[in-house]
């Protein structure tokens, strides 16, 4: 009889251990990921950048291959996005595919717009060209406590710059107005 009494707590302990194991796997569910990315698209398409407060952690770090340096902090990210919107006021974004795994999501997106405002580049502000852009890319987001804490963005920046009227050329002999970093 005494033995049984010992077994019961053991069984209960076992159940607890199993229960805990299952939870550790998923940091973000598919539904949560969908909701967050839908909100992101809304923030970008309606230029309601305050919505980003619900999506990104205050100290988020974004590695974007089109930005010369990492974008550090939500304020810097908002500034970056608002530069995008200044250049492409009709910017429209869609999410085409999503993978959700553990603490990460991978999203494939398409962005289109018309360059009717000044474009901020490393060469300085470029005047509007009226050109249309349309390009796709991919982002990995790392989540912690329901918010994005780190993001990696890849797309063909050359294609975008060509759509914006740029071209790539071999190094030019230095000219007086040239300003190199």
């Amino acid at each position: 009889m005494k033995k049984l009494l010992m077994i019961i707590p053991l069984v209960i302990l076992l159940c607890f251990t199993f229960g805990c194991q299952k939870q550790a796997e998923e940091v973000i569910t598919e539904e949560e990921a969908k909701a967050i990315h839908n909100l992101y698209v809304e923030a970008r398409n309606t230029v309601n950048l305050d919505l980003l407060d619900e999506i990104y952690a205050e100290d988020v770090v974004v590695h974007d291959c089109s930005a010369p340096e990492d974008i550090i902090g939500l304020d810097a990210l908002k500034q970056y996005y608002s530069n995008n919107h200044r250049a492409l006021p009709d910017l429209h974004m869609t999410i085409d595919d999503m993978i959700v795994k553990g603490d990460r999501t991978v999203t494939v997106w398409t962005l289109s717009g018309t360059n009717t405002g000044p474009l901020h580049t490393h060469l300085g502000d470029m005047p509007a060209t009226g050109n249309k852009v349309h390009f796709s890319g991919v982002a990995i987001d790392r989540f912690d406590e329901g918010k994005i804490v780190e993001e990696w963005v890849y797309f063909n920046v050359l294609q975008l710059m060509q759509q914006l009227g740029f071209t790539i050329v071999p190094p030019q002999p230095p000219e007086p107005q040239e300003e190199k970093k």
């Binding site: 920046v157 050359l158 790539i168 050329v169 190094p171």
Partner: peptide, 23 residues
């Protein structure tokens, strides 16, 4: 495939220029 082709071109010495040349 999503790749930063511009990054590669710049490493090969190419430079990005506005098409009309003048700024």
């Amino acid at each position: 495939v999503f790749e930063d082709v511009l990054g590669l071109m710049q490493q090969l010495g190419m430079e990005l220029k506005p098409k009309e040349g003048e700024k």
